[in-house]
Nucleic acid binder design. Structure first.
Length: 210
DNA sequence: CAACAGATCGACT
DNA sequence: GTCGATCTGTTGA
């Protein structure tokens, strides 16, 4: 157990503000094989309408509909044909926005986390990267839209130890080609779970033959 | 250590 | 048909 569960009202923030609130917070997910909790150490803000890199920049679609919904819900999307990524919905009232959960440290259920991701290189207690985080937590499309503030929800969000502002760093988001000058990635300085930065950009498909 | 190509499904043009 | 809020193994400095 860590802190108390967040309320929807506490999470109804601009994604940039919500990002710093989520650092150090604990997300806990219960699946058929058990419960895993992760302390968040790296997140990214996506503000929607103003933000060309956001899924909702071009308007509402069936995939991103959750981002228009109430704060404190989980937005899960499938990407690159094999990975799931999880976001916490922040703003409300027609101002879509969310915070991508990028990395964390497993604080309970480490054995289950390891079983779910046996190929995790090195330390299985780290969830270094958004797709690894979701697989360790057992989150997939089925958890899209669940309420993180509901005690009965399969995925819940709790307050953690407060992170001193001096240890919070920010920088450009990972893998984002547009708006690279916007430092909307936030992480806890010194955490081993923080993913290494990879710049975004177009990659031409090469090797036309097979 | 840094950089790149491949894998693979669904949303969007 | 193209490309993506990615990860991993391989290659090269």
């Amino acid at each position: 157990m860590t802190g108390r569960q967040f309320t929807r009202r506490e999470l109804a923030l601009d994604p940039v503000e919500l990002s710093t609130l989520l650092l150090g917070a604990v997300i806990e997910a219960t699946g058929p094989d058990g419960t895993v909790a992760v302390r968040l150490v790296e997140v990214e803000a996506y503000r929607g309408l103003d933000d060309p890199a956001s899924h909702c920049y071009r308007g509402q679609t069936p995939r991103n509909a959750v981002m228009w919904g109430p704060a404190g819900h989980l937005y899960v999307y499938f990407v690159y044909g094999m990975h799931f990524c999880a976001n916490v919905v922040g703003t409300e009232d027609g101002q879509p926005g969310a915070v991508l959960l990028r990395a964390g440290e497993v604080v309970s259920g480490a054995d289950i986390a390891k079983a779910r991701r046996p190929s995790a290189r090195g330390n299985g207690e780290l969830a270094k990267g958004p797709a690894i985080l979701t697989s360790v937590l057992g989150i997939d499309k089925a958890e899209n839209g669940v309420d993180l503030t509901d005690p009965a929800s399969p995925v819940r969000l709790y307050t953690g130890e407060r992170v001193p502002e001096s240890s919070i760093r920010s920088g450009p988001r990972v893998g984002v080609a547009m708006a690279m000058d916007t430092p909307w990635r936030f992480w806890i300085d010194g955490s081993p779970a923080v993913s290494t930065y990879r710049r975004g950009g177009k990659r031409r498909a090469s090797a036309p033959g097979r």
